[in-house]
């Protein structure tokens, strides 16, 4: 019951314990436990947003898709079978919804290569440092690098799991991750301490 207390939303904690917790939260959500869903939402919303943003490159679309994901999670959690991959389950939903939205955008001709705004102007909690790092992640990284780095930072997924989720070879994920971190280190050099 109180497994979740004392765990922080992000940062270093035991990944296996985390998975167990998320699995439990989804199952409880499926049984109508709103508090469990609230906890789940708090723990995963950054990763879901990261996934959506890394595909859609547009804050507004990413926000919509993140919310769509949670509606789907809430309505289909009743059929969730815990398999020890709760984050992957949620992020797969996000990925599918993002791809759907991308295809729709493409069909509607709304997609231009440079069109992205990582952060809306009126986001009150976003600091200038947030803006800087997210902006660089959008600007300096390739699509795949961005997906890999943002997911790694926010989801707690292992590279192996990221590889599976993004349907990429593990070696690609590792090399792109390292390269992306190097790039960010180099562009942020001198801008931040």
């Amino acid at each position: 019951m109180l497994i979740i207390s004392g765990l922080t939303v992000s940062g270093a904690h035991d990944p296996e314990e985390d998975k167990q917790t998320l699995d439990d939260l989804i199952v409880r959500t499926g049984k109508g436990d709103r508090e469990a869903f609230a906890e789940l939402y708090g723990r995963t919303r950054a990763a879901v947003y990261a996934m959506a943003l890394s595909y859609l490159k547009n804050a507004e679309d990413a926000e919509d898709t993140a919310q769509d994901t949670f509606v789907k999670v809430l309505t289909s959690s009743g059929t969730y079978v815990p398999k020890g991959t709760p984050m992957a389950w949620i992020l797969t939903i996000t990925r599918n919804l993002s791809l759907m939205r991308m295809r729709r955008r493409m069909r509607e001709g709304e997609l231009s290569p440079e069109e992205w705004d990582a952060i809306p102007e009126d986001a009150p909690r976003v600091t200038s440092e947030d803006r800087l790092i997210l902006g660089e992640a959008m600007r300096s990284l390739t699509d795949e690098e961005r997906r890999i780095v943002l997911l790694h930072a926010s989801s707690g997924l292992k590279h192996r799991e990221t590889a599976k989720l993004l349907e990429l070879p593990l070696s690609t994920v590792l090399s792109k991750y390292n390269r992306a971190i190097k790039k960010l280190q180099s562009v942020l050099k001198g801008e931040l301490v």
Binding site: A46, A47, V48, Y49, A50, A66, V126, V149, A153, S154
Partner: peptide, 9 residues
């Protein structure tokens, strides 16, 4: 990144 994403999400 994690902090920025959690603020922007």
């Amino acid at each position: 990144l994690d902090s920025a994403l959690s603020h922007a999400a």
